[in-house]
Every structure is written in structure tokens, then in C-alpha cells.
Design a protein around this nucleic acid. Sequence first.
DNA 1: AACCGTCGTTAACATAGGTTAAACCAGGAC
DNA 2: GTCCTGGTTTAACCTATGTTAACGACGGTT
Lengths: 250, 250
Amino acid sequence: MESGCIIKHFESYAPISRSEAELLASLEKNPKDYGKNSYVWCQGDTPGDFYSLKQGWAYSFRDLEDGTRQVLDVYVPGNVIGLRDYAFRSRVSGLRMLTDGVLCAFPRSRLTEVFAESLLLCNIFFTIGSRDQAILIERLVNLGRRSAREKVAHFLVETVYRVDRTVTQPNQPLHLPLTQSLIADALGLSAVHVNRVFQELKDEGLVSSPNSGVQLQELNRLKEIARFDPTYLEEDIQAAMGEAGQFRQL
Amino acid sequence: MESGCIIKHFESYAPISRSEAELLASLEKNPKDYGKNSYVWCQGDTPGDFYSLKQGWAYSFRDLEDGTRQVLDVYVPGNVIGLRDYAFRSRVSGLRMLTDGVLCAFPRSRLTEVFAESLLLCNIFFTIGSRDQAILIERLVNLGRRSAREKVAHFLVETVYRVDRTVTQPNQPLHLPLTQSLIADALGLSAVHVNRVFQELKDEGLVSSPNSGVQLQELNRLKEIARFDPTYLEEDIQAAMGEAGQFRQL
DNA sequence: AACCGTCGTTAACATAGGTTAAACCAGGAC
DNA sequence: GTCCTGGTTTAACCTATGTTAACGACGGTT
């Protein structure tokens, strides 16, 4: 039995005991394939399950009355999705696949059980919620106070950081499966203006777009443009639990 | 001993047992006065405490490199503030008083203890995090996809809802202690453009501004302009816990 | 090969909202 | 009373970004 995607993700926060690993494993019994562009759920649906994203990319969004939409967040493998709806009777945002992928569903009701059985896991879920908020806040700053060029650069750099927290080779080309119109919908811009920005960035050799998606060529330059400060992605469960997290056993 | 502000707030989610009330009471031993415009903490500070807002209004914000700032959220009495920094080694946003007020601080380290001792309180804290996210998302939609007029209307209506979840007399004038430049900083607009919008709204008799702050005259009309849908503020812990929350005892 | 849909590209034109700056007003400090 | 400060108001002007529309390139389907 290979270790599942939640477990791997959670281990990046703190060492997981065997019993806790079993508890987590019970949360991801149902890996399921989803095709590119398929909807996992829609806003307004009754939120029965949370998901962890095992493979592929997804994004959450809100459709507006006037036909436009706001992309709220992009998810990469390992992310836990849907905690946001924890306390709501209907989903506040939709979820759609950006690429083909695999999701593991687990019922919301299980979460309370998990809280009861493991203080560490409870803290990790809380940490994830805290991180999600930090990302939303940064997106808010991006939307409210930066120019289109900065917005695009910031969004791209953030996404790279989220794919791989330890960006080892900073100037190696990195591929992201994002379309320009997705980026536009995420940043509150029009697709054509995003394209204008992309032309600029291409001329400067900072990005390229092969057959599909975006290729980042000069991460460091993009960081400068975005004035990117990764603090908001550097969550750390020990900051919350103190050393307790290390010694505690179930 | 009067019952504290956290307890009152938490009781709006679920019935609280005596022992849980005592636990909560131990979290708010330190009411402290803060003057209007004083800083409670700054971004980058080490986050030692959470706060509950007992009296007065506050707001969280991020200062940008170029001197501008983004207001992230406005807090009204009863709100729990700072959970966002739960897992971070430095605060991701600053907190400043909008009016004179009283805050109760409790140390972050206590939260893990609370989780351990009461599943219900753990769930309530999780619910609060979930609600905070829903609010941020709505603000994101607001910033990304609505016109200035809609933004302002939406922000005002949301704020009214947060002051009093049961807006009983929909067309009774309601006073909010917000300045136009705060609203501008919250919505990613310039202060002068917010003023332009206010002139319009005043001409239409929807708002007025007495000596200070904003007075809402026609909440229903404002809701229409904003296409306001309060679903995102209607969190409900029983949706999360099922009926368990009602029967459980410590 | 021909077709189709999605995405990217470009250009011409329109406008919402930014910027600057100056005047104004009310309340607090002295 | 006078000064000061923070907030509001107004006007003139400017630009970043939206809109519309048309075309091209590519990958998948028949």
C-alpha cells in the first residue's frame, strides 16, 4: 500500500505517528479520476465532502450574475480543498479541473472525528486553514493595489512557489498549465490585457508560451517585478503548537 | 462577573456548557483599552496573542512598498481576530483601531489546549476560520469583478450585516464609523473616486454622512445595487458537526 | 483532408477610474 | 479665539485597462 497524498502532504508539516497515518489513510479511500475542465462541484451545492488533490491541477471560482467569473484560487497536487465550506450549508465557490487529475474525497462528518482523535491532525487542519487565508489575503492585495504587470508577475511566482515550496533552481524554466484567460479571471483583468502584459514579458525574455501553458524563464526578474515576498507562504505548525507537536503521541 | 465577549459570541453558534464557558472565560482575562487609530500590532510582528474585540471597531491591513495600503477586513464587536496568523512566525497583516475600543488578548499557545479540552469549541474556532475565508472570498469577488459603485454598496451592506446578523428594520438609518479613505483602501479605489460614488448615492438619498462616518438610509436599494446575497455570511456550525453538537458534553 | 473549438494575438476605439491640487470644514489642542 | 490636522469636496486632466472584433495557430475529431 503506497502512502497516500494527504499523508505525504501532512508529513511536510510534522512527523505523523502510525495511528495518525491510519486515520488519514481512512480519509482517502476513494481516489477518483476527473477529466480536464470537468466540474467537481458547483457553487450552491450542498457540501458533503472535502477533497485532497492527488494529481493534476484544479481551481475554485465564483460565477457572477453578469456572466463573468472570478477565479479564487488555483490548487496544485497535495492541496486539501473545500475546508472553506466547513460551516456552510451550501458551497460558496465552485471547483473545476484545470487539467486531468485525481481527487480523494472524504466526508465532512469525518473531520470532527479526526479532531477528536488527534490533536496534531487538528492543528494541521487549522494550519491549512490559516495558510489558505494568507493566500487569499495576498491575492486581495494583488487585486487591490498592483498594476496589471505586477499582478501577473505576482500570480505566476506565487504559483511556482506553491508547486514546489523549495524552489531549488531559480532560473530553470518552469511550466505551469495556466491559460491566459484563467489568469485574467483570477486577477480581475480582461484576457486581452493579460495578453498585452504577456507580450511585454515575452519581449523581455521572462516568460514563453509553448504549445500550451506558461513557461517561466527568469523567476528572479519576475520576483522583482512583483516585489514578491514569500513570507505569507511560510507557515509552520511549530509556531502554533510550540514544541508540543514534536513530543506528543496519541 | 458579567459574561465575557467571547462567550456571548460563541453562544451564537451553539449552546456552551458550564465547563466550556469557564475555559472560554480563561481566555479573556485581559480586557485592555485602545484609543482610536492606535496600532494593536504591525505586520511582521511575532504573533503572540489572539484577540476578541469587546467594544469598538478595528481593521486589518497591509502596507505596501509604495506607501499605499490595502485594508483587508473590518472588525465589529464580538469578532475574534488574529486566527489568520495561527501558523505563521510573523503577522501577515497589521491591526489598527477604527474607533476607541476594548480588546481581550489570549495567548496562541492556549488554543491547542482549548482544542484538546473541548471538541465543540474546536469546531467553533474552525467555523470562525471558515467564515473569515468566506468573507475574504466575497471581498475578492468585489475587488475583481464589480464597478466602483457596486463595490461601495456591497461593502456597506456587508458591514451592516456583520454588525447585526438579524437586520430587523431594513430601512431604518444605520450608522457605520467608516471614513471614505478607509473604504477606498479596502476596495482598491482612490479616495476621490469613492467620494464621487458617495455624491451619487447621496443624490439618490441612499446614504448620508453626518459629522463623521456613514449613515445608510435605504438598505434595500443598496442591496439591489450591490446584488447582495448574504449566503456567505450564514455559517452554521450544525452544518459541520451534524446533530452531534447538540448532545455532546465534555 | 477538412472541420471545429479553444486559445492566443493584434488593432482601433472607449471609458472608468487615477492623479494632482486646491479649497473647505469640523473638531481638538493650546 | 487661532492654529492644526484629518477628512471631505470639486475640478481639470490623464492613462491604464476594458471592449469589440477579427484573424491565426494548434490539437482533436470525423
